[in-house]
Design a protein around this nucleic acid. Structure first.
Lengths: 249, 249
DNA sequence: GCTGTGCTTTGACGCAGATCAATATTGAAA
DNA sequence: TTTCAATATTGATCTGCGTCAAAGCACAGC
C-alpha cells in the first residue's frame, strides 16, 4: 500500500482515494462515497509500462494516486506527440466511452485508483455532484490543453522548454518547500525524449536548449534530472508567459 | 430571426435553440426546458466582431446557432494561436468560471443563444442531465484539442493544411449533399491568416501549400474560397491521418 | 470607368530546428 | 572492478518554414 497523495482543499481527513476528495465529493460526508468504495480497486504499474493502448476497450475510469502517467498519440510513421500529463489526483478515462482514444503510459512508477465503469456511470446518473465535479475537472484539462496548443503552435524551442519547466516547478511547489530566497528545485520526471514529445521538438533540441538555459543562469542542473530555478519570474519571462499570471497559483 | 441549424439525433421537432437539443435535454420532454426558456436570449455579431475578450467577465453561457466563432490566445508580442473553432450547436463559456480565458471572435456572421450564467448554474445543480450532457460535450472538445495538438506539434505544413481541409470537409458533409462520385465541395469559412492561426503557420506558408495541393490535384479551387475535394481518401492520406478512421463519421 | 483597400499569391533569402553522427555520462548487471 | 545499454550532450550539415518584399486580384465606393 502507498501513502495517500498530498491533498488540497482541506480534505486530508478523508480516506486514501483521491477521487473521493477531488473528483467526486464536495464535502466528504455524503453516502455516495460508500457506493464508490464498493466499486473501487487499486492498480500499480512500473515506469514505462503501458496502462492502455489507443483503441483498446477500457472498462474502468481511474484517478492517479501516486506517480505520473502520460497520454500520447502516435502517427503511422512513428511521430509521437504527448497530449496529456497526469499527476496525482488527475482523472483518467471517460464515462460514456468504450475505447481509449490514445495510449496511456506510466511515466514513473504509478498507482491508480480504478472504478469499474458501468457502476460508476450508474452512480453518476443518480448523483449530480459527480458529473459536476468531473465537468469542472474536464474544463480545467481543456484549458490546459489550449495553453499547450499555444505553446506547440507559436513558441520557440527556448520558450517551450522554459514553459515546461515552469509548469513542473509550479506543480511541485505545492509539495516541496522552497529553498532559501524563493529558489525552487524539483526532480524532472521526464527523459529528454519525453520532454521532446511533450513539446513537439527533437531530443537533441531539448538537450541543447537545456544547456543554453543553464549557461544563461536561468536554471541550474544537479545531475541530469534535478533542476534548480533561482528566479521563477525570470523563467516565466523566458517562457513568454504573461508574467503577472498568478505566481505559483 | 434565423432558421434553426440542421440538427442530428432526431430532434428536429423541438424549438429553435440548439442547447435544448444537444447540450441539455436527452428526450426533449422534461420540464426543465421551460426553465431554460425563461433565461435564454439571442445575440448576433457581425463577422470580425469580438464576442468577449480574454480576461473579461462573462455572465452568460451560450450555444452557437448559426455561423462560426473562434477562440484565440495571444502572446504579448502579438503571436496568435487559435485554440477552438465553434460551429453551430457548439457550446461557449463555462459554468463556474468568472472570466473568459481567451478571446472569442465571430469569424463569420454569428448568432448565439445565451443563458444567464447564475440561473443556468442553479438549474444545473438541480438537473443531472445538464451537467452530464455538458460533460460529454466537453470531453468531445478535449479529444478534438488533443488531435489538434498532434497536428501542431508533429505535422508538416502540407499535412496541417490537408488536415484542416479534411476537418472542414467532414463538418460540411453533413450539411451539403456530395457532388457526383463522392467529390466533396465546401466554402472555406476562414481567411488565409485565420487558417495560419489555426495551424501554427504564417499566411504565406498557408498560401504556398494551398497552391501546391492544387497543383498536385489533391484539391481544386473555385475562386479563393470554394474548395472541391475530388478524392477524400487522398486528402486524408496527405493529412497523415489514420486513413481507416471513420470516413465522414 | 478609376482608385483604393483588403486579401492572396509568388519570389528571394535566412535561420531555427531537424537530421545524421560521434562521444560522454550514468547506472545496472555480471 | 569491467561491461553493456540506456540516456544525454555536442558538433556538422541540411532544410522547411519564416521573414521581407513585391505584385496580383477582387470588390466597394466614387
Amino acid at each position: 500500500m502507498v501513502s495517500p497523495p498530498v491533498l488540497e482543499r482541506g480534505h486530508q481527513e478523508c480516506a486514501d482515494c483521491p477521487i473521493r476528495h477531488r473528483a467526486v465529493c464536495a464535502r466528504c460526508d455524503t453516502n455516495e462515497l460508500d457506493q464508490l468504495e464498493q466499486i473501487k480497486y487499486y492498480r500499480s504499474y512500473q515506469a514505462g509500462q503501458t496502462v492502455v493502448w489507443s483503441g483498446d476497450r477500457m472498462d474502468f475510469v481511474a484517478s492517479v494516486v501516486t506517480g505520473i502517467a502520460s497520454l500520447t498519440q502516435t502517427m503511422e510513421d512513428g511521430r509521437r506527440q504527448m497530449v496529456g500529463l497526469l499527476l496525482p489526483s488527475d482523472f483518467v478515462g471517460r464515462p460514456g466511452r468504450e475505447t481509449a482514444p490514445y495510449d496511456v503510459t506510466a511515466t514513473t512508477d504509478l498507482m491508480v485508483c480504478c472504478f469499474r465503469k458501468k457502476p460508476f456511470e450508474a452512480l453518476m446518473a443518480t448523483t449530480p455532484h459527480i458529473a459536476q465535479r468531473l465537468l469542472e475537472m474536464t474544463l480545467d484539462e481543456l484549458d490546459a490543453a489550449r495553453e499547450w496548443m499555444l505553446l506547440l503552435g507559436r513558441k520557440t524551442a527556448r520558450e517551450k522548454i522554459a514553459s515546461l519547466l515552469a509548469i513542473l516547478a509550479r506543480r511541485n511547489a505545492n509539495l516541496h518547500l522552497k529553498a532559501a530566497k524563493g529558489a525552487i528545485n524539483f526532480d524532472l520526471p521526464l527523459t529528454r525524449e519525453e520532454m521532446a514529445d511533450y513539446l513537439g521538438l527533437t531530443l537533441e533540441t531539448v538537450s541543447r536548449q537545456m544547456s543554453s538555459l543553464r549557461k544563461d543562469g536561468v536554471i541550474q542542473l544537479e545531475g541530469k534530472r534535478h533542476i534548480i530555478v533561482p528566479d521563477f519570474d525570470l523563467l516565466l519571462e523566458v517562457a513568454g508567459d504573461d508574467s503577472d499570471g498568478g505566481m505559483l497559483m
